[in-house]
Nucleic acid binder design. Structure first.
Length: 595
DNA sequence: GCCGTTTTCGGCCCGACTGTTTTCAGTCG
C-alpha cells in the first residue's frame, strides 16, 4: 500500500528538514542539498510519487541515494524514521512557523523556544498573542518594527493569503501581449521582453513579469504606471514597479539600461535551477555570473571588472555556449546539451501544416458539447492560417440516446453533408479529414458502433468519464480502445484540467510503447485549460521514440489561434519538427493517418 | 547530501533588502 503525498507536501517536509539542520549547524551543504531537492520537487511537472513508482527518481536533479531512500520510506510507510527523530530536537511549533512568509529557520526556532510553541496546532495563535502583548520587541535582535511585521505576517497567514493561484499560460500571455503592445508604443522603450515563467512558457504562470531596456528608466516607469488597465499600484522603485490589473493579475516591470539588458534578461528568465547550474559551470571557468554581467575571478587581482552584455546571446557566447531557448531552461540537461552542441532544433509555429482535432457545430447529437461554427467557417480559418489540411473531430453521437442504427445513420449523413459542403466551397485549398472524437468507455470499448467507422477516415480517442480508476485498470482501458485500427490519436492523454482536476493515473511507459509499436500518435492538446500532454512527458515520449501531434481542440474558429500554446508545450518537451506529425505535408500526413 | 568538460573526492550561486545594528544576520528570489 503506497501512501499519497503531493509534491508540495514533500517539498515542505524537506524544507523543514533543512530548517532543523540549520538550527543544528550541520554541514551547510547538506542543508543546501535538502533545499535544492525541495525546489526541484516543487517545480516538477510530474508527481514525485509517480516517478518513484516508475523507479525514475534519479531523473530529478538533486535527489540522490539518501533522499531516494527516505522517499521510499515516506511512500511505503507514510513517514521517514530519520526525520521523525530529527524533529524531536525542536518545538513542534517551529515547523508551523516556517510556513509563514518572513520566517526562516532562525527566527522560527528562536520564537518557538522563547514562547514554548510545543503544539503545531496553536503555535500561530500563541505567537500572535505574544506579539500583540508586546512580548517580542524587547527580545534581543528584535524591535518594534519586526514585532509589527510579525503580527502582520501571522494575520495574513491566518487569512490564507499566503498562496496565490497560478493561471494557465494562455491567460497570462493574453495580458502580457496587451501590456507589451502598450509599452512598445513608448519611444523610450528600446526593447520589451517577458521574463520568468512567462518567457519560458511554463503551463501555469504566477505574475506577469516584463522587462524594458531603456536609457530613461524613470520615464518608462511613469508611463507603465499610467497603464489604463491598472487597478492599483503596489510598489515603485528605481529599477521596477508592480501593478494590480483590473482582472486581479499582478504585473511587474523591470527597467534596465540597454548595455546590460542581456545579463538582466538572462537572470530574470530563470529558471532558478538553470541559473544555479549555469553559475556553477561558469565558476569552473573562473567566471562569476550575476544579473549585471560576468566577472572574471583572479586570485591575485581583487578588483574584478564587470563585463556587460546588451544581448543575451552574447552572455551565453561568452561562456562558450550557444544561446539556449528559454523554454529549455529548466536544468533538465540543456546545459550539458549546449556544452556538447547538441541542443535540439525546436519545432516552430510556422512548421504546422494542419490539425485534426477541432469541433464544428454540426449536430451529431453528442453527449458532450458541440462547436460554435459550421464546417465552412472552420475550413476558412484553417486556410487563413496557411494550413494544408483540417480534421473535424466532433464528439461521437450519444450512445445512451440512440440505437446503433441511428448512430450509423447520423454518421453516414454527416459524411455526405461534409463532402457536399466541401464540393460547394470555392477556392478552397484546405483538404478535409472526416474524423471523430470517440469516448473511451469505462470498459475500454469505443462509444461508436463498428459499422459507423466506415464513415470516418480515422478517429481520436479520449477519456471523458470515470477518471478515478486504479492505474492498471485505466491503462488497460485506454490500451483496449487505442488498439482499434482507426484509433490513431490519443487526445488530451492525462485528462488534467489546470487548476481544477488532476490527471488520471496511467502507466505512461506502456501507453508510449504501445503507440510507438502501432504507429499511433499522442496528442499535445493546446486548449488553455489542458496543455496536455505535459512538457516533461512530451520529453519522455520523444526520448522513447514516439510521434506526437498538436491540436487545439477548438470549439470555435478563433480558438485555432491557440496552436502557439501547444507549440510552447512541445518546445518545452524538446520537440523538433520531425517529432510532430502535423508538420508533415498533406500527402505524407494522409498516408500516416489512413493506413 | 549531491554530483562529475578535469574530480568517485572535494568542491558546492549571487545579490538585494530589511532591521537591528556600528559591521552583520536573516530571509528571499
Amino acid at each position: 500500500m503506497a501512501v499519497k503525498f503531493t509534491n508540495a507536501e514533500i517539498a515542505r517536509l524537506f524544507r523543514q528538514v533543512a530548517a532543523v539542520y540549520t538550527i543544528q549547524n550541520v554541514n551547510r551543504f547538506r542543508i543546501i542539498a535538502y533545499e535544492k531537492a525541495a525546489d526541484a520537487i516543487e517545480t516538477s511537472n510530474l508527481e514525485i510519487r509517480d516517478l518513484w513508482q516508475d523507479k525514475r527518481l534519479s531523473e530529478i536533479q538533486g535527489i540522490g541515494a539518501v533522499i531516494s531512500g527516505h522517499l521510499e520510506q515516506l511512500f511505503t510507510s507514510g513517514k521517514v524514521r530519520e526525520y521523525e527523530e530529527l524533529f524531536k530536537a525542536v518545538p513542534e511549533g517551529m515547523l508551523t512557523l516556517l510556513d509563514v512568509s518572513g520566517f526562516g529557520p532562525k527566527k522560527a526556532y528562536r520564537l518557538a523556544v522563547e514562547f514554548n510553541l510545543n503544539d503545531a496546532g496553536n503555535a500561530i495563535d500563541k505567537l500572535l498573542k505574544a506579539a500583540r502583548g508586546d512580548k517580542i520587541a524587547p527580545l534581543e535582535g528584535f524591535g518594534a518594527k519586526s514585532q509589527a511585521d510579525i503580527i502582520e505576517a501571522l494575520e495574513r497567514f491566518k487569512l490564507g493569503q499566503n498562496k496565490k493561484k497560478r493561471m494557465p499560460l494562455p491567460v497570462a500571455d493574453a495580458t502580457a501581449k496587451q501590456l507589451v503592445a502598450y509599452l512598445k508604443k513608448f519611444e523610450e522603450a528600446v526593447q520589451v521582453e517577458p521574463l520568468g515563467s512567462l518567457r519560458r512558457k511554463v503551463s501555469t504562470i504566477g505574475d506577469v513579469d516584463l522587462a524594458v531596456a531603456t536609457d530613461k528608466p524613470q520615464k518608462v516607469l511613469e508611463y507603465f504606471l499610467k497603464y489604463p488597465k491598472k487597478d492599483k499600484i503596489i510598489e515603485i522603485g528605481p529599477s521596477g514597479a508592480s501593478l494590480i490589473l483590473g482582472n486581479g493579475q499582478h504585473a511587474d516591470l523591470r527597467v534596465q539600461k540597454p548595455r546590460s539588458f542581456g545579463a538582466m534578461l538572462q537572470y530574470f528568465t530563470g529558471s532558478k535551477q538553470h541559473n544555479i547550474h549555469l553559475r556553477e559551470y561558469a565558476l569552473k571557468k573562473g567566471l562569476s555570473l550575476s544579473e549585471y554581467g560576468i566577472k572574471i575571478l583572479k586570485k591575485s587581482d581583487k578588483k574584478q571588472k564587470l563585463i556587460e552584455f546588451p544581448r543575451e546571446e552574447d552572455f551565453y557566447k561568452y561562456l562558450g555556449l550557444p544561446w539556449i531557448p528559454p523554454e529549455l531552461r529548466e536544468d533538465l540537461g540543456e546545459i550539458e546539451a549546449a556544452i556538447n552542441n547538441r541542443l535540439p532544433e525546436l519545432v516552430k509555429l510556422t512548421d504546422i501544416k494542419g490539425e485534426v482535432h477541432v469541433h464544428s457545430n454540426y449536430n451529431l447529437e453528442p453527449s458532450h458539447d458541440l462547436g460554435q461554427n459550421p464546417l465552412g467557417e472552420m475550413v476558412d480559418k484553417a486556410q487563413s492560417l496557411g494550413y494544408e489540411y483540417l480534421g473535424l473531430s466532433e464528439h461521437n453521437p450519444s450512445v445512451s440516446k440512440h440505437t446503433e442504427k441511428e448512430v450509423i445513420a447520423i454518421m453516414k449523413r454527416r459524411k455526405q453533408d461534409y463532402e457536399q459542403i466541401m464540393l460547394s466551397k470555392k477556392n478552397v485549398r484546405v483538404k478535409l479529414f472526416i474524423m471523430l472524437e470517440v469516448d473511451i468507455l469505462p470498459d475500454g470499448k469505443l462509444a461508436l458502433p463498428e459499422k459507423a467507422f466506415e464513415f470516418v477516415d480515422a478517429v481520436v480517442v479520449s477519456v471523458h468519464t470515470s477518471f478515478q480508476m486504479p492505474k492498471k485498470e485505466m491503462t488497460e482501458r485506454v490500451l483496449a480502445a487505442f488498439s482499434h485500427p482507426k484509433a490513431k490519436i490519443l487526445a488530451h492523454p492525462s485528462g488534467r484540467l489546470i487548476g481544477k482536476r488532476e490527471g488520471y493515473e496511467i502507466d505512461w511507459q506502456r501507453i508510449f510503447d504501445f503507440a510507438k509499436n502501432h504507429d499511433k500518435a499522442i496528442e499535445i492538446n493546446a486548449h488553455p485549460s489542458r496543455l496536455d500532454l505535459v512538457d516533461v512527458l512530451v520529453k519522455r515520449a520523444i526520448e522513447n521514440g514516439n510521434k506526437l501531434i498538436i491540436d487545439t481542440d477548438s470549439h470555435d474558429r478563433e480558438s485555432m489561434d491557440l496552436m502557439e500554446y501547444g507549440i510552447s508545450v512541445a518546445r518545452r518537451g524538446w520537440a523538433e519538427k520531425k517529432d510532430i506529425l502535423n508538420t508533415m505535408s498533406y500527402n505524407k500526413f494522409k498516408s500516416w493517418l489512413i493506413s
